[in-house]
Design a protein around this nucleic acid. Structure first.
Length: 493
RNA sequence: GGGCCGAUAGCUCAGCUGGCAGAGCACCGCCCUUUUAAGGCGGGUGUCCUGGGUUCGAUCCCCAGUCGGCUCACCA
């Protein structure tokens, strides 16, 4: 990448001059006694007199992010992983030689400084530098200080620069990690076991989606990146683990949007001897407690919507939600009328869709976008839920819910189908839809059926889109803002 | 994949009806020992996204393409 403009060439020249002084511009370890934030925490309340009376010697390592220099002195800000702190260089203190080296430093360089704390005229906590070491020379200029970096393409492609200059971006990713940690802790405290199941699968199952295909050379066979861990986690229920979860990547070969990245992070957890009603209670508790723990409140604003995550949340059946949206009972029970209604709403239909799928089109058009407050939509059509247990009182619907917040789907859960004969029949129906042209219909997984034949305890399972949860809790409007390195097209040479 | 919008200095942006490429910050030089968007004086550092076309002349108009954003379709 030989895009070495004048600014970069100037820095290469300084690099040579520094080497010419016998100084290694990429030196090794540095023992810092303090981090910037710790010093603020400890001494922001200390007065000028306190600091003069009791001299506090500190050392600090970080990146120079600002420089205001005079002839024989300079103020600078150093940023480390915790925050930033002002440092003060004086020719008198450092001596001719060291000050000469200081003059060769640029914004972006990593240095280690030793000195003592004092307060400036404007009362800012500052380190008077007595000695410093160049730790890493930076050869590329950072974006300017007022507007920072806003070009989304550069922000996503060169996230490292984004993280250096945009503290809010860094904060979002810090929160992301804390959210995931809080979710893990919540599940661990309830004795869920974290497991890892295959990312590369011979039959991509557990969801309706198009997979990525890859190839194993030594085995001479095609493999698929997983679209969901579901079928493997349920095999573990068969094996005797009663509470398992996995937080890991899923891959779906579909469109990219502000709510979709080809690889995304999913939480799936399974509970033996529970059903979907138990999971509604647990989901309310999980999400509200994570929100309280990480952002300190259950009352959030997302895209201008005021949302309360405080339980209990509304629960409404799929059919009732359609009725509330004004869909008449004859449409809800008649395939032709449902099809006509869906077409009128602009649904993209190929023909041959079962009633449940048509009703889901109506749901997505009429109900989903209007749900603002967290709402469990329950009891979905069996047609579109090939892995869920049927309701005993009505085989056309299943024990399933999806959670919607702010007009978007956040979770999907159901009582797991554990009847191997029923499961096999559902797979057969999916195969028929596949042959009719639905590329996303499930494939037959004979080993999964075999596992169910050994007996899987009654269980309930749930998937929560972690990226979307993070978006909601951090107020991010694009999934790219909560994924460190979102998928992009190849940068041109 | 469709539609709309965008791409000009390292960054953030302006550029009229087609006539020698602009600003602020950053950077370079000089001055400056309490600044924090430090200040003063001087300096423009550019494949105007790429390739064609129209024109005496294109950053600007036309065509094709690349990358990005939003949106629709698809999906979680």
């Amino acid at each position: 990448m030989p895009d070495y403009n004048e600014l970069i060439q100037q820095r290469f020249k300084k690099l040579d001059e520094i080497r010419g002084k016998g100084i290694n511009p990429y030196s090794g370890r540095y023992e810092a006694t303090s981090r910037a934030q710790d010093l603020h925490d400890s001494y922001d309340n200390a007065t000028k007199e306190d600091l003069e009376k009791n001299r506090v010697e500190v050392s600090l390592a970080g990146r120079i992010i600002a420089m205001r220099s005079f002839g024989k002195a300079a103020f600078s800000h150093i940023q480390d992983g915790s925050g930033k702190l002002q440092v003060y260089f004086q020719k008198n203190t450092l001596g001719e030689d060291r000050y000469g080296l200081f003059k060769k430093l640029d914004i972006g360089d990593f240095i280690g400084v030793k000195g003592f704390l004092f307060r400036t005229k404007t009362d800012e906590l500052t380190v008077e530098v007595e000695d410093f070491v160049l730790l890493t020379k930076s050869l590329r200029p950072l974006p300017e200080k007022w507007h920072g970096l806003t070009d989304t393409e550069i922000r996503y492609r060169q996230r490292y620069v984004d993280l250096i200059v945009n503290p809010d971006v860094k904060k979002v990713f810090l929160l992301r990690t804390r959210i995931i940690q809080a979710v893990r802790a919540f599940l661990a405290s309830r004795e869920y076991l974290e497991v890892e199941t295959p990312m590369m699968q011979t039959i991509p199952g557990g969801a309706a989606a198009k997979p990525f295909k890859t190839h194993h050379n030594a085995l001479g066979m095609d493999l698929f990146l997983r679209i969901a861990p579901e079928l493997y986690l349920k095999r573990l229920l068969v094996g005797g683990f009663e509470r398992v979860f996995e937080i890991n990547r899923n891959f779906r070969n579909e469109g990219i949007s502000t709510w979709h990245n080809p690889e995304f992070t999913m939480l799936e957890f399974y509970t033996a001897y529970a059903d979907y009603r138990d999971l509604m209670d647990m989901t309310e508790e999980l999400i509200s407690s994570v929100a309280r723990e990480v952002i300190g409140t259950t009352e959030i604003t997302y895209e201008g919507m005021s949302i309360s995550l405080a339980p209990p949340w509304k629960r409404l059946s799929f059919i009732d939600s359609l009725r509330e949206a004004g869909v008449s009972d004859d449409v809800l029970t008649n395939e032709d009328k449902a099809r006509a209604h869906a077409k009128k709403l602009g649904a993209n239909l190929k023909g041959g869709e079962p009633l449940g799928k048509l009703l889901n089109e109506l749901f997505e058009a009429l109900v989903e976008p209007n749900i603002v407050q967290p709402t469990f939509i329950t009891d979905y059509p069996t047609d579109i839920s090939p892995l869920s247990k049927k309701r005993e009182d009505n085989p056309d619907i299943v024990e399933r819910f999806e959670l919607f917040v702010g007009g978007k789907e956040l979770a999907n859960a159901f009582s797991e189908l554990n009847d191997p004969v029923d499961q096999k029949e559902r797979f057969m129906k999916q195969l028929a839809e596949r042959e009719a042209g639905d590329e996303e219909a499930h494939q037959m997984d004979a080993d999964f059926v075999r596992a169910l034949e050994y007996g899987m305890p009654p269980a309930a399972g749930e998937g929560i889109g972690i990226d979307r949860l993070v978006m909601l809790l951090t107020g991010s409007s694009s999934i790219r803002d909560v994924i460190l390195f979102p998928q992009m097209k190849k940068e041109k040479a």
